[in-house]
Each structure stands twice: as structure tokens, then as C-alpha cells.
Design a protein around this nucleic acid. Structure first.
Lengths: 212, 212
DNA sequence: GACTGTGAAGCCATTCACAGCT
DNA sequence: AGCTGTGAATGGCTTCACAGTC
């Protein structure tokens, strides 16, 4: 258990390195330098080395990194040596898209169930994942010891859904709803805000590029 | 035209303030302090003031900010006084979810068309937006002077799609494909990486919370 | 008295540059 | 000679604390 603080940006990059290394490994590349990693992920060599240095010495001086070893180390750091069961709350378009998203299964995240309040959807499946009534959610989380929940419901329900998740003992939440929700300290929480990303684009267009 | 550099994090927060102010305005709130904004968006009062100070003096000392005025100012800063036409490349689950996403239309982003290579999808519509053949994309962008494109295609096609967008004169790209793509300097580019967000959660679970 | 606007301080992340291995 | 690992320097964002205004 490390005590020094690792920047969040470092973890985000490790995730990207890890995908890149997986590719390299599949293509039979055995050794790679920080400079080549940097090129492959659009970063700087020094940053690649610094990021890795938070967790140990994985390279060979004068040579580089063994692709297979480094990939495994990062996989372990990111907690991806296990598969994670994930539930999705909200079986609308976004919930459905996330369920189908290839990137999750590839990385060890299994969507095991969706929950919705719309009676017409209950009993259907999306991909392999069944849709259950939201009233069953708390029990399901407890029985199956689900640790990760994704929230993809309309804004007015978000806080209520999060409260149920927390109450059921979920450990981590990824929220796609564009509103502020409060979560107790002991639950990991992240937000993906699509509108904010769009508005970062338009800000730059009008302020730095004289569009319109 | 400002020359001092505004942190990207500031813009992201402005986007959130702006939504919060819209709510307040709809609820008839006329004046608000930086402290109350901070509470509403889960931030700090000093940060709210600093963020706003990059763009001018919008408040009244001893009083606070006029909600309506501030909302309008931020709307202008973010470039949201216009409506933006947006096209989506990839009419799969993700493209479809983004098209339906309420948060975009509310903020002035109109999905005007989708493009796909699957002949079975061509001619269908998602919401109000028609799906066209990808071969028509370049012409469509030129004719309609579309400025923003969203990329939601499988990894192997991402770079090719981006090249076509750039070539057609698109100004900004929001990319949902989890891979590195290169874009020329003059095009605004942002990436939303769902797997990275998930892995930030699992990293924290295994490293700081002893899960598993 | 209350709240904004802001220079200064503090903190955190990235980049530099070089010592240490192979 | 080549590349990693890392302390030091830099740069940037956030927080502090207080002067200025209503």
C-alpha cells in the first residue's frame, strides 16, 4: 500500500499506456522505450518514465521496458487482474449504449444487469444483460456483492438512485447524469459530463479561433 | 479578445455554473453569492470568484451576482449564444445515445445528421436526424458549413473518419473512440474515454480502499 | 456587515537534465 | 552509446487573506 500521492492524471495515462502495450504485445513487440511509448500515446518520454516511477522500477537502463512485463504490472496497478461486475441504472439509450460498449468487456468489466423503472422494459435483455425492476436493485447488489454502478438516468432521479446504490453497499459510481449529486466519502465517485466536453470545444472556437 | 491564459478547468466549471444559474433563474432567484454557487456546484467560493474574474467583474461587492446577468455573461463566454449544428459519425448504439441525449439540445447543440457505412441504416432517422451514407459526409459538411463533429465509430475507423472530417473543414471534434488519433493544430479536439474513467475507479478501489 | 475582486502564497504536476546502469 | 530513474526547476492551478465596495 503506497502512501505517496499519485496524480489522477498519471492513472488516466497508465490506462492509456496499458491499452497501447496490449496492442504492441499482440503485434509481437518485446521491448519498447519510453520515447516510443510517448509517440504511441501522444505524450512525452519523461512523463512516461515519471508515471511508471510512482510504482517501481520496471525498465532496464540502456534498453527499455519488456512489453509483456510492463503490461502486466500496469494491469495489476489499475486493478484489472480481476473481472469486475458492473450494473447500469437506466436502460434508456445511454444505458443501452454503455452496455454494448466493447471497450468495457475488453478491459474486464462485465455488465451483469440493468435496472429501470419502466415496466415495459423489465424482463428484456440488452446484449446478455437482463433488465430488472429498479425496486430489485438493492437486493441484487447485496446478493451479488456488486461493487460498481453506472448511473444513466434522467437528472431528477439521479440523487435518489445514487442514494439507493450507496445504501446497498456499492463501492464505486460512474455518473453520466449532468447534475450535482452528493456521495459519502467512502464511495468512489466519478462524473462524465458530455455537455461540458462539448462546451469546452465551443469556448475554444469562439475565444481562440474567431469562429463566428 | 483575451490574451491571458484561462485554465481548462475553469471553463469546465463555468459550464457547470451556467447550468446551475439557469436552474436558479427558472426558480425565480435573482441574486446569488459566490458561496451559494459553490454550495450548489460542489466547489469553493474563492474558486467561483477567481473563475469569473478571468472574464470581468460581474458581481456587486457586498451583495453578490445578479443571476440573470451572470447566466447571460457565461453563456456568451462559452459560445452558447448561437446554436451549433453537430454531426455524428457512427450510427451505432453510442451514436444513437448521443443523438437522443437531452443535455445537448438544451444547451444549443443540434444533431443535424448521422453518417454510417452500414447500408441497412442509411435513410433511417434517429430522433429527427437522418442517417446518411458516410461517402456523403464531406460534401454535407462543406455545404452546410458544419463546425462540430462527434466520432463514435469502432477503433479501426477512427483515424480515417477524423481525416475526412478535417479535410472537409470541420473545426472541432469530440471523439469517443478509445484510441490515439492525430489532428492538425487548427482543429479543436477532445476525447471522452469511458474505459479510462472506469479504470480510475478501480485503481482507487484496489489501492486506497482495500477492495479485493 | 456582507460579499466581491485580487495579489501573494501554497500546492501540485510536468519538464528538465543528468547520474546510474547495461 | 543508449535509455532508465530521479532530484531540481519550472509552470500552472487553487487557496488564502485582505483591501475595496455596497
Amino acid at each position: 500500500m503506497k502512501t505517496i500521492k499519485v496524480p489522477e492524471a498519471t492513472i488516466a495515462r497508465l490506462s492509456v499506456y496499458s491499452r497501447f502495450l496490449k496492442q504492441l504485445d499482440e503485434n509481437g513487440v518485446a521491448i519498447i522505450s519510453s520515447g516510443e511509448i510517448a509517440k504511441g500515446v501522444d505524450g512525452s518520454p519523461a512523463q512516461v518514465r515519471k508515471d511508471l516511477a510512482y510504482f517501481g522500477e520496471f525498465g532496464i537502463r540502456g534498453v527499455g521496458y519488456k512489453v509483456k512485463d510492463l503490461k502486466e504490472q500496469i494491469t495489476k496497478i489499475l486493478g484489472l487482474t480481476y473481472e469486475w461486475d458492473v450494473i447500469i441504472v437506466g436502460a434508456g439509450n445511454l444505458g443501452s449504449a454503455i452496455t454494448h460498449y466493447k471497450g468495457f468487456k475488453e478491459r474486464g468489466f462485465n455488465i451483469v444487469a440493468l435496472f429501470d423503472k419502466d415496466k415495459k422494459k423489465i424482463g428484456l435483455t440488452i446484449g446478455d444483460a437482463p433488465i430488472y425492476d429498479i425496486s430489485q436493485m438493492e437486493k441484487y447488489i447485496r446478493n451479488n456483492k456488486v461493487k460498481i454502478g453506472v448511473v444513466a438516468v434522467p437528472v431528477p432521479y439521479a440523487q435518489k438512485v445514487v442514494d439507493v446504490l450507496v445504501n446497498a453497499g456499492i463501492q464505486a459510481i460512474l455518473n453520466f447524469t449532468p447534475c450535482v449529486v452528493t456521495v459519502p466519502e467512502h464511495v468512489e465517485f466519478r462524473k462524465v459530463d458530455l455537455a461540458v466536453n462539448m462546451e469546452l470545444l465551443t469556448f475554444n472556437l469562439v475565444n481562440y479561433r474567431n469562429i463566428i
